[in-house]
Write a protein that binds this DNA or RNA. Structure first.
Lengths: 122, 122
DNA sequence: TAAATATATGAATAGTTGTTCATATGTTTA
DNA sequence: TAAACATATGAACAACTATTCATATATTTA
């Protein structure tokens, strides 16, 4: 049992469940990694960016095609692509006047697949 | 090659790369699913919530221990737990005066692991 | 039942973010 | 080189969000 009536390590004692606290802090990544991790997920946390990533699932696409396919302005797409670039979720290469974007690696699909699995669960 | 000089399907033609557009839209999930997916990732997109989830990796923990371990106010933790609950990332059960929280399922760890893998890649 | 403890929640605020608009940069073509 | 096209970006604004503070709800204990 987690709490014993006469010895609540949780909230009434001055030493707030010391061993548990140690354990929690031991398994916790460094502050910077936590921050980076949150930043990464934040990038996935916008339906516009998710749509862009889905669009790139099959093949590389230029900015204006993305804009057309997703019914967005070129500027909005470009701004979002910048965020995806910074997070290293997409790559790009120039071809003539256009810039072609593609998924950076397999992680992108894997992460989205995990998310889809979760939301479809119930 | 993606663009042919004399026949740019991308941006100059009126039919904006029709077949590509079809393909992109075909692979795109329904609007509602895209929204739900973004909402899910948004929940992971905050270092406080990530820290809470990490704390729950090993065992169930009550709110005040979480607050103590993470150096947060009880209120702030409780607010975040509500969001995690709504996203079905954590479960809870009452035991006496305390409420014990734990991870909802294995997906949580898997998703975070994927994220960690990505940010550690370079 | 009253007091104490643990958790939840509404309102307010400061900080963050996505889109739009205007414009700059970069590439090709005439 | 000038014009046209494709993309990138800075500023501004509206919408959203995490925390704090005060307080409500729920459970146990005296």
């Amino acid at each position: 049992m987690y709490h014993h009536e006469t010895d609540c390590e949780c909230c009434e004692s001055i030493q707030v469940h010391e061993d548990l606290l140690q354990k929690v802090l031991a398994g916790m990544p460094a502050e910077e990694e936590l921050y980076d991790l949150a930043e990464l997920f934040k990038v996935f946390g916008d339906s516009t960016r998710i749509r862009i990533l889905y669009a790139l699932f099959e093949e590389e696409i230029c900015v204006c095609d993305l804009a057309a396919a997703l019914s967005m302005t070129q500027s909005a797409v470009s701004h979002q692509l910048r965020i995806l670039k910074q997070a290293k979720l997409v790559r790009f290469r120039r071809e003539g006047k256009s810039v072609l974007y593609s998924l950076a690696d397999a992680h992108v699909k894997t992460m989205i697949a995990q998310g889809v699995e979760h939301i479809r669960e119930d």
